[in-house]
Amino acid sequence: MEQIFEPKFTNQLWYLTVKNFKSMIREISQLVWIFGYPLVFILLFRFGYGLETFNIFAPGVVILAPIVLISQLAGHFAEEKESGTLQRLITTPVSRSTVLLSGLFSQLIVAAIQIIVMLLLILLFGVSINPNANIFLLFFIPFIVAFTSLGFGLILASFVRTASSAGGLAWFIILPLQFLGGLLTVPLVGFIPTSLAAEAMGAVMINGSIAFDLVGLNIIFIAIWGIGLIVLGILLFQRKTAIL
């Protein structure tokens, strides 16, 4: 009666990504965190500081959205480790790297939705976007920041054992990125992903610029950050979960 099946990597990746996505959207607290945290700042700037200030900080508020993915991804993998589901999955013919990739993919889908919603919300709340602004770049700059968030999230997931500790410790990365990068204030450090992204986003959104030294170069640096962090995160995660 036994049959030996030949599973395909692409099917496994798809099914795991769908599973992660379903698990995420069925948890109200995660939805509140993903969309609620950036929304609070939209409301705060729009109605607390007024439209003029909001126009200046709107690019940073959009960048804020993918930053919350740090705790999302770290929490996701910590939960898989804590509950034993990661171990259960690897008793099937699925590789550890497929499981890992599926986690990244599902968060990237969330990032894409999040960024589109944030852009629509800032428009709805009256932010004036330069008519010459490149729509693709308005989406792409925060989206590429999401890769750096996933890198930070993976590194964090390597060290934490529980989802709750992942959620708590993520703040030690989110807050410095948020404040040092000048998402809600003036930037204090120029070379971190958030400050590079805020500068590029501001140039596109406010000035309608596509200048290479302000936009293109910053995107390249953010991409380098993203690749570096994800590679480091994958290495650490594989090593730390080799024996579960």
């Binding site: 599973p7 795991l16 259960r88």
Partner: peptide, 15 residues
């Protein structure tokens, strides 16, 4: 996930 989805996931991993 519901019961079916949990069981299906393992079947899907096996192809």
């Amino acid at each position: 996930l519901n019961a079916r989805e949990n069981i299906h996931l393992i079947a899907q991993m096996h192809g």
